[in-house]
């Protein structure tokens, strides 16, 4: 862990009279996996969308690699990628064609070599020439992960990358991500509703509620602070408190 690679300061997003993200500040260190935890509607996905430049913040700043995202979008996004169970890729293209398009959008060199490498790493040889519309949800998750990893990002945003997948695939994805993160030294912002997964994956966790950060630290620190047995109990406690309010 050294200097922060992502610096978010006082980030706020309002949609008319609804505040989705409220004065949120955090850093992601180089080589760190930061977990973003919170109930539905807590502001996790909106935060990631702002970090990807897809939503303009109402106020606050986002710096990556020391550069302001608002002013250096292209330079920053070349070194960033994302994956989510909820995103899709053009259905009428094959897996390889989709990866080729992404490779060109990120100005990659030796495109075919990169594709072959990522296909091998994620064991996608059997679906390389398959139409994307014919993929199962597990295969689709691997494709979106492949498109994110292939560009060799320094920062990766993973928004519930394992949601609705069977345990075997979840396990494979987690093992791959951990190994890849360790060897490539990339920084990851990770959201999930699976508390055990969050504990396993993250070096540090931020708990969001109603757009605010309500807890921050390692999973042990958070569990201790709230006097619960595990992260799941903390999540339930905070989520129920939030509903009562």
């Amino acid at each position: 862990m050294s200097k922060p690679i992502v610096e978010v300061r006082n980030l706020t997003k309002r949609f008319d009279d609804f505040t989705a993200v409220d004065d949120v500040s955090f850093d992601i260190q180089e080589g760190e996996i930061l977990g973003l935890l919170g109930p539905n509607g807590a502001g996790k996905t909106t935060t990631i969308h702002m970090l990807l430049g897809l939503i303009t913040p109402t106020s606050g700043t986002i710096h990556m690699f020391g550069l302001d995202l608002a002013q250096h979008r292209e330079t920053i996004l070349r070194q960033v990628n994302f994956s989510s169970t909820y995103i899709s890729m053009p259905f009428s293209l094959t897996v390889e064609e989709n990866l080729k398009v992404i490779a060109r959008l990120y100005s990659l060199q030796n495109i075919q070599k990169r594709i072959d490498e990522i296909i091998e790493k994620l064991e996608m040889g059997d679906i390389q020439y398959k139409l994307t519309r014919k993929l199962s949800s597990g295969q689709m998750s691997r494709l979106t992960l492949a498109k994110a990893i292939m560009t060799e990002p320094k920062v990766l945003f993973l928004d519930e990358p394992t949601a609705s997948l069977d345990p075997d695939i979840v396990n494979k994805i987690k093992i791959f991500l951990k190994e890849y993160q360790r060897t490539a030294g990339l920084s990851i912002l990770y959201t999930s509703h699976n508390m055990r997964e969050m504990e396993e994956m993250s070096n540090r966790i931020i708990f969001l509620q109603h757009g605010h950060i309500v807890a921050e630290g390692t999973s042990d620190q958070i569990i201790q602070r709230y006097g619960q047995r595990d992260l799941e109990e903390v999540f339930l406690k905070l989520a129920r408190e939030s509903k009562e309010k």
Binding site: G53, R73, R78, I87, F91, I102, L105
Partner: peptide, 18 residues
């Protein structure tokens, strides 16, 4: 429309594409 139907706008505009 092709991008909209394929829900591909996020992939495009979260990339360096201007």
């Amino acid at each position: 429309l092709e991008e909209m139907w394929a829900r591909n706008l996020m992939n495009l505009f979260a990339s360096p594409l201007t």
